[in-house]
């Protein structure tokens, strides 16, 4: 019986178990308009990648604990010292020194508002978000950049105040563990697994 591929790290080496690919036979592609002559073949491929979050791991881990982490340049020699980045940047884009990791959950709760948005009726393969997807880009007080995420409840509008919610139950450890709802939303209205 096949088993999903799983990975852990020991002595800084990947240790893997389970199946990282699944075999499906190829089949011929034939021309129905021309005597069913052979034109090609299908090439099935189902593979699991092993991906490191590197210096961003702290951000994704924190989502499952209900915290939104950002980074700040604290290099006194940097012209842009004090800039806060969300999305979380490991290094300052100007001086390239390692940024300081900060918890900006409270800033997000108090100041997040929708900069722009998009209600998208379509998705690509492997999408697990419910459609239509309500993309929102969120600006925060004192943050140099504008985070992309998705709204779980209500209809987005520019300038709308939103607050973060976190998938603390059954986290995926991906960016999908962070979502947003209009300010004033009650805890019992949140999607399954999410809390403030």
């Amino acid at each position: 019986m096949s088993m999903f591929g799983q990975v852990f790290v020991k002595n800084n080496q990947y240790k893997i178990k389970g199946d990282f690919h699944h075999m499906t036979p190829n089949t011929p592609i034939r021309d129905a308009d021309n005597g069913w002559k052979l034109l090609g073949v299908t090439n099935p491929r189902d593979m699991t990648y092993i991906h490191s979050y590197g210096g961003e791991a702290a951000f994704f881990e924190a989502l499952s604990q209900g915290k939104l982490m950002a980074t700040r340049c604290d290099n006194p020699k940097c012209e842009y010292k004090g800039s806060v980045y969300q999305p979380f940047r490991i290094h300052c884009p100007d001086c390239l020194k390692k940024n300081t990791v900060i918890d900006m959950t409270d800033i997000a709760k108090k100041s997040a508002k929708v900069h722009t948005f998009m209600v998208c009726e379509r998705s690509g393969a492997f999408n697990i978000l419910e459609k239509p997807i309500k993309f929102i880009n969120i600006e925060f007080d004192g943050v140099a950049t504008i985070l992309m995420s998705y709204l779980s409840i209500g209809e987005p509008a520019m300038g709308m105040r939103v607050v973060p919610i976190f998938k603390k139950q059954g986290p995926t450890y991906t960016i999908l563990d962070l979502s947003w709802v209009p300010a004033g939303t009650k805890e019992n209205q949140l999607p399954e697994g999410f809390s403030f």
Binding site: P87, C120, R122, G124, I128, F135, M148
Partner: peptide
């Protein structure tokens, strides 16, 4: 940061 959000480039562009 973006891919898992629908895996649809139109969404990233259309904002």
């Amino acid at each position: 940061w973006e891919g898992p959000l629908g895996h649809i480039y139109t969404g990233y562009y259309a904002v």
